[in-house]
Simulated scan of single mutants.
Amino acid sequence: MREELRVAAYAVCVREGHLLLARWVSPEGDRKWTLPGGGMEHGEDPYDTVVREAAEETGYTVDPTVLLGIDTKRRHHPRRLGTRLDFQALRIVYEARITGGDLRPETDGSTDLAAWHPLEEIPTLERVDLVDAALRLWRERPENGHLKPPAPH
């Protein structure tokens, strides 16, 4: 089984009860809302990653103010010729404030739209699981930056 690790940094930008999101377009064409952010380039600092990615995806300049924590997700995917991929996403989540720029969609990237959404409407959106994890980090602010698994129902 092939292993792959993707490290990325994301911004939680909340202003006047609204969350800034970018709409991610999957390789298959599905669209889901996500946080502004994305993959680190080799040798890049995560702080610089979130600043760069937020600008690319939203048009805004952001100032990461607090490291909220780290979320990780692991998935297994089938690959060609019957092989499998063990994929792990390591997602570094910052709280950030907007310091400049104008809202606009990304061109020729992995997102096609950026918008502010009322916090109370987030549960109704088609979104990636990172949005929920990041909002939990933002609301709960765990001292160690690690979310406890949700209690079983």
Rank of each mutant, 00 (worst) to 15 (best):
R2C: 01
V7E: 12
A8Y: 02
A9H: 08
V12T: 15
C13Y: 12
V14R: 11
R15G: 10
R15E: 15
E16R: 11
G17N: 09
G17V: 14
H18C: 13
H18W: 11
L19M: 14
L19W: 14
L20H: 14
R23L: 11
W24I: 12
V25N: 08
V25S: 10
S26I: 15
P27S: 13
P27T: 07
E28F: 14
G29I: 04
G29M: 06
D30K: 15
D30R: 14
K32S: 14
K32E: 14
G38W: 04
G38C: 04
G39Q: 03
E41D: 01
H42A: 00
H42Y: 02
H42F: 01
G43I: 01
D45F: 00
P46L: 03
P46H: 04
D48Y: 08
T49H: 03
T49N: 02
T49P: 02
V50I: 11
R52F: 02
A54N: 05
A54L: 05
A54W: 05
A54F: 06
A55P: 01
E56G: 03
E57W: 08
E57V: 06
E57G: 08
T58S: 10
Y60V: 09
V62H: 12
P64N: 13
T65Y: 14
V66K: 15
L68F: 11
I70T: 12
K73P: 02
K73D: 09
K73V: 07
K73E: 12
R75I: 07
H76D: 05
H76M: 04
H76W: 06
H76N: 08
H77T: 07
R79E: 03
R80N: 01
R80L: 01
L81N: 04
G82Y: 00
G82C: 00
T83H: 02
T83D: 06
R84V: 04
L85K: 08
D86T: 03
A89S: 14
A89R: 13
A89L: 13
L90A: 09
L90S: 11
R91H: 10
R91P: 04
I92A: 05
I92Q: 06
V93G: 09
V93A: 13
E95T: 14
R97S: 15
I98T: 15
T99Q: 02
G100H: 07
G101T: 09
G101P: 03
D102H: 09
D102L: 09
R104I: 07
R104Q: 13
E106W: 04
E106S: 09
E106I: 03
D108I: 02
G109M: 05
S110D: 08
T111K: 03
D112G: 06
D112L: 06
D112M: 05
D112E: 11
A114I: 08
A115K: 12
H117L: 10
H117I: 12
P118M: 14
L119I: 13
E121P: 05
L125I: 08
L125H: 09
E126S: 13
V128G: 13
D129W: 13
L130Q: 08
V131H: 15
D132W: 07
D132T: 13
A134T: 12
A134L: 09
R139T: 11
R139H: 11
R139D: 15
E140A: 09
R141K: 09
R141H: 04
E143A: 10
G145K: 01
G145P: 00
H146A: 06
K148G: 00
P149H: 01
P150D: 01
P152Y: 07
H153Q: 06
H153F: 06
